[in-house]
């Protein structure tokens, strides 16, 4: 329990630190949102609008920095992230809410698939070490994980969308179709296919190699030899002894990867015009939409922190050696 409390404390502490950094950073920038708006409109916004915008955005410039900080903390904790400057009067939470499912769906799916398939392939390669399977899978994995994601993305896009026309060129789904309708769902799948394949391909390699190498190490461990000496079927040795132990480091990198889903998605979403949160972040950055940027950063940071926290918890379940530490 102390372990849990410590982890939770750490989560809260880092969460608070992230919130504070998120508060401080935009304030280190010169200029306020109104100036940014004017810069963005490049002379096409009536300067008389400044006053209206200040009221609309609820900017209280006469508040002390501490008062602003506590207002910010209060608002953030209650999920009030303010309005986007680009998409006013859309709320930041609404925009994130619209974009996040796309990213979680696409990248989450790809990451999970890459983890499962990569781990299985790595274990298989290790089990059949030296076989043809092994000697194909490992160089392929190395090659895939070494290639830049946008490069593979463009390649895949060119071949399967432009040349062969099997998949749409970009976007999340053809416009106007809701998530709910059946045809809409088909469109979503066909639009997500290429980015998902790309993302899976590039992250697959890492899992294959890591799993293969740890499995080979584990296969030389005494407990695997002893398991054989116990006359256990190969299936049991491979799964409950070798893979079950070899998966631990893979699981750590998986948990980290989950936290970086958004960051990792930027290239993919850009290349494939995918309407996810990474693309939204890109837009927010290019159009200086600070409230939106802050909101997205918050989501990313919390994502990383929570993924790490959950990984810690899950690790406790997976590895009894940690569990003992956790109890003490």
């Amino acid at each position: 329990m102390r372990y849990l409390a410590r982890r939770l404390g750490l989560l809260l502490l880092t969460g608070w630190a992230a919130l504070t950094v998120n508060f401080v950073l935009p304030r280190l920038m010169p200029g306020d949102p109104i100036q940014v708006m004017f810069a963005r409109f490049q002379g096409r916004l009536n300067p008389a609008a400044a006053n209206a915008l200040k009221i609309a955005f609820g900017l209280k410039t006469n508040q002390s920095i501490f008062a602003q900080y506590f207002t910010y903390l209060g608002h953030t904790l209650t999920g009030r992230l303010g309005f986007s400057l680009t998409y006013f009067p859309e709320k930041v939470t609404t925009l994130i809410g619209q974009a996040l499912p796309w990213t979680l769906g696409l990248v989450g799916f790809a990451t999970v698939v890459a983890f499962i398939v990569g781990t299985a392939m790595g274990a298989l390669a290790a089990w059949h070490r030296g076989s043809a399977l092994d000697s194909i899978m490992v160089p392929t994995g190395v090659m895939l994980s070494a290639m830049p994601v946008f490069w593979i993305g463009l390649l895949v896009l060119y071949v399967f969308a432009f040349k062969l026309g099997w998949f749409p060129v970009g976007g999340g789904a053809t416009g106007g179709q809701g998530l709910a309708s059946v045809s809409g769902f088909g469109a979503i799948i066909s639009h997500a296919a290429l980015p998902a394949i790309t993302l899976t391909a590039v992250s697959l390699g890492g899992y294959i190699i890591l799993m293969r190498n740890t499995t080979i190490t584990v296969l030389n461990d005494d407990f695997v030899k002893f398991a054989r000496a116990k006359g256990l079927p190969d299936r049991v040795v491979a799964s409950r002894y070798a893979a079950r132990n070899a998966i631990l480091p893979n699981f750590t990198s998986f948990a980290l990867a989950l936290g970086f889903v958004v960051a990792g998605a930027i290239f993919i979403e850009y290349v494939f015009d995918y309407p996810g949160i990474a693309y939204l972040l890109y837009q927010a950055v290019t159009s200086l939409d600070y409230p939106l940027m802050q909101g997205i950063f918050l989501v990313i940071v919390l994502g990383v922190l929570i993924a790490n926290f959950l990984a810690d918890l899950l690790y406790v379940l997976l590895d009894p050696r940690i569990r003992v530490e956790a109890r003490s």
């Binding site: 461990d221 005494d222 407990f223 030899k225 002893f226 398991a227 054989r228 000496a229 116990k230 006359g231 256990l232 079927p233 409950r240 002894y241 079950r244 132990n245 997976l318 590895d319 009894p320 050696r321």
Partner: peptide, 25 residues
């Protein structure tokens, strides 16, 4: 061969941290 192991032929390894599967009871 597998059926013989443990039932007819058994083996005790050098004592180490790792003879038993560390993640199961």
């Amino acid at each position: 061969l597998r059926a013989l192991h443990l039932a007819r032929i058994s083996m005790v390894f050098q004592a180490s941290m790792n003879v038993l599967n560390p993640v199961t009871r």
